[in-house]
Design a protein around this nucleic acid. Sequence first.
DNA 1: CTTTAAATACCAAACAAATGTATGTAAATG
DNA 2: CATTTACATACATTTGTTTGGTATTTAAAG
Lengths: 215, 215
Amino acid sequence: MARNKYPEITVEKILDAAQKLFLEKGYDSTTIQDIVDQLGGLSKGAVYHHFKSKEEIMDAVSDRMFSANNPFDKVRKRADLNGLQKLQEAIRINQSDEARTSMTVQAIPLARNPRLLVEMIESNRRILTPHYLELIEEGNADGSIHTEYAKEIAELIPLLTSLWLLPSVFPADKEGMKHKFYFIGQMLDKMGVPLMDDSIYALVDEFFEKMPDQK
Amino acid sequence: MARNKYPEITVEKILDAAQKLFLEKGYDSTTIQDIVDQLGGLSKGAVYHHFKSKEEIMDAVSDRMFSANNPFDKVRKRADLNGLQKLQEAIRINQSDEARTSMTVQAIPLARNPRLLVEMIESNRRILTPHYLELIEEGNADGSIHTEYAKEIAELIPLLTSLWLLPSVFPADKEGMKHKFYFIGQMLDKMGVPLMDDSIYALVDEFFEKMPDQK
DNA sequence: CTTTAAATACCAAACAAATGTATGTAAATG
DNA sequence: CATTTACATACATTTGTTTGGTATTTAAAG
């Protein structure tokens, strides 16, 4: 078998194996050979045919992890909602999405992989922050939000909800996580962005309740 | 010269060189040989005599960077101050300290070195957060602070002031940095911890004012 | 529809560079 | 004076990357 008809499948297999290993052992201590060994018969040449360096594999892995379909596209054209309501809807969609994909990021030991952690912070800032900013400014314009810190809040929401709420970086049990989330809600409220309403708290509670206890 | 009388000096030289290179080029692309080349005559054997791996050099470097003398020891026994005042004094000391050491962390391209960035987050959480927590709880007890989110705030202050205020991770010019800092102050205020007073704002303003413009 | 040329998916092995080790030696220590 | 220590030098090993080759698919031409 010298040539496969469906190379995309091979690429996926490589990324799956790499992601698993990077998360388990970290980028540095994962060797190309480790990846090859998980591929079932494929060779190192195959890997280097699809990716030109280990670095590039890492980039592809983090792209795939953090460029999940973002909920902002779905709410943007909802003319029936004001800025604040769009924000809330986006949060809701995102939350049920994460619940469905069985808490992708939450359970992951990102602390083991500094590169991935920083990539996550970076991609949040690049991709999510502008969307938050747009909606906050829309809310400021239509009167549903009142803040002079639109930019700051747009940067903080993704930072807090995805880094600060990562139990592998900031250890916390269920109750601790809930308390943190209430803090964020109350804080945003007092800063003029009453983002979290009961339906969101309910979703999040349910989400944390299903979270497995980890040491 | 086969044996040196003062090996500590050699160790320091190694750490200096390693730190410089790690920050310039990142951990991965810094080779042991690169470090050796900056050592003026010393050999690879010397490095491996003092550190048993490149990894261990990295650990030593980050230890040295982030275990700076913390200001909490100095304020703990000040019986004349209540919890809030101790917090404020600690912030003040820390701020003038950073100004004196010519903005160590602020100017550093930590984004280039994910390992160091994560080490920083980690060490902040391990070392600074407990100190903040202690003083916040003291303030809660003596009535100078009123919050049910002591733990959360103790975790957030170092996260925000050292990660979110890092321009190499969250790009911002002078005005942007000031605005962020005002946000933090106001936020803490509304959450029951009126930490930032005029004297602190003045210090911080001055600090940012001296900051070099970096695109 | 068949033939043929080109591109591609992959393998096996060699390469190069970087990390790490073993051994030796002279100065310091006690 | 014996031992430990701070290095140097040469060597071994690991690991990322490159190269050359082969079979299969795809595309073009007949």
